[in-house]
Amino acid sequence: MAKRFAVETLDRSLKDIMNCQESFGGKVIVFGGDFRQVLPVVPKGTRAETVSASLVRSYLWNNIEKLSLTTNIRARVDPNFSDFLLRVGNGDESTDNDDMIHLPDEVVIKYENDEIFESNLLQSIFPDLERNATSSEYLTTRAILATTNEHVDNLNEKLITMFLGDARAYYSYDEAVDDTHNYYQEEFLNSLMPNGLPPHKLFLKKNCPIMLLRNLDPSNGLCNGTRMVCKSFGNNVIHAEITTGQHAGKQVLLPRIPLSPAENEGYPFQFRRKQFPIRLCFSMTINKAQGQTIPNVGVYLPEHVFSHGQLYVALSRGISMSTTKVLVKTDKRKNENCHFQ
């Protein structure tokens, strides 16, 4: 997801420093990552602008003489599943006349109707949720991925309702900075849901899974995307336990902090929200899950994926066809053969 401009700047700088016109001044550079994943995010950008910002399309890609493209998919995924994933990622998987990919029957949850198709997915990924509500391992080895925050919030709301325990509600303090004339009412500010910010109403229960949204203390494991479980609640602090990575098991305290959206959100005022920098993570967006391995993963696709690489990223979070389930909302004409773009 890195934009090519930063790498090209490094290339030019090393050429100047080394007084050498070879790529990167003749130095050996190792790139880590999977080139099949989603492209860089260009806010409000066209498809052409997104592709233009991608490292894959930069002049470096065509000028580096020795480029080794490897993947760790085969190392952590069963062979049959890995072959399918690599065909999807490379664009080699066969498609029909509508550019739809046929998903293996083993991973598809059959769509029946709007009333029960979501519950089928929830039960497949979170079976016996009530009995396992206190197990950190159970909660952090499974998640449902969706394309947009709207779908993620909907799934999280359903699952926190099913979760055992009494709910604790935390409300944010929202303000428009320097709004001396009070043009923006508090009710309006509370309704805003910019990307990267926690919701105004944050409902939590003891032992529920959460995800950190800011880099608070990277050296101690508190990074953007860190998954945790809630242990206890205070009025202005939350006690949580890190459940993934090298800091798994560490107990941490999370305070309320002021948060602002990125400038490219396009608000005509400076918005500030004081809230705990966390979200529920029974479900998360496909982009947020990039780089993670989730043994039991569900993919919620009521509509087509809208970005290059999203389907590959979603499917490749899992490790096996038997533990990866995809819910595709299809029309009656395609119920028998689940396809997706």
Rank of each mutant, 00 (worst) to 15 (best):
K158A: 13
I144M: 11
I125F: 05
S316N: 07
T141C: 11
K44V: 04
L204Y: 13
P79I: 03
N90S: 15
N113M: 06
L121P: 04
G165H: 08
P127S: 10
F188Q: 03
F81P: 00
L259K: 02
T324A: 00
M162C: 12
K325F: 01
Y267P: 03
A6I: 09
R12S: 11
P218N: 09
K206Y: 03
P268E: 06
H200T: 05
V42N: 00
A146H: 03
N335M: 09
G89M: 01
I242V: 15
H151D: 14
E115R: 13
F5L: 08
N207D: 15
F35P: 05
R168T: 14
E93V: 11
G245S: 11
S191K: 02
T323A: 00
D128Q: 13
D16I: 10
Q123N: 15
I294Q: 09
K250N: 15
E106K: 00
E118C: 08
N264S: 08
L60W: 07
A133P: 02
H239F: 13
G26E: 06
T46M: 10
T324E: 00
L315Q: 00
F282Q: 08
L159C: 12
P198I: 02
T285L: 10
E175I: 11
G291C: 03
L129D: 05
Q292A: 12
S135Y: 05
R76T: 13
S68Y: 13
L39V: 07
T285P: 01
Q341G: 09
Y183A: 10
D153C: 06
M193E: 10
G309K: 01
F276C: 09
G225R: 13
D34G: 12
M211G: 13
P295S: 05
I125M: 06
A240N: 10
L67C: 15
E336W: 06
Y171I: 08
D98A: 14
V229T: 15
G33E: 13
D105M: 01
E65K: 14
T140P: 03
P104R: 00
D105W: 00
C230P: 11
T134P: 02
E65T: 13
K288C: 11
F276M: 08
R142D: 10
E8W: 04
E115D: 15
P295M: 04
I125D: 03
D153G: 04
E137H: 11
C223I: 01
G32D: 11
L280T: 09
K231H: 12
Q246P: 10
A133Y: 14
Y300I: 01
V88H: 02
P295C: 02
T134M: 09
H304G: 09
F306N: 02
G26Q: 04
T148D: 07
S172M: 02
H200R: 04
S172C: 06
N63D: 10
R279K: 15
A289G: 12
T323F: 00
P209V: 12
S68H: 14
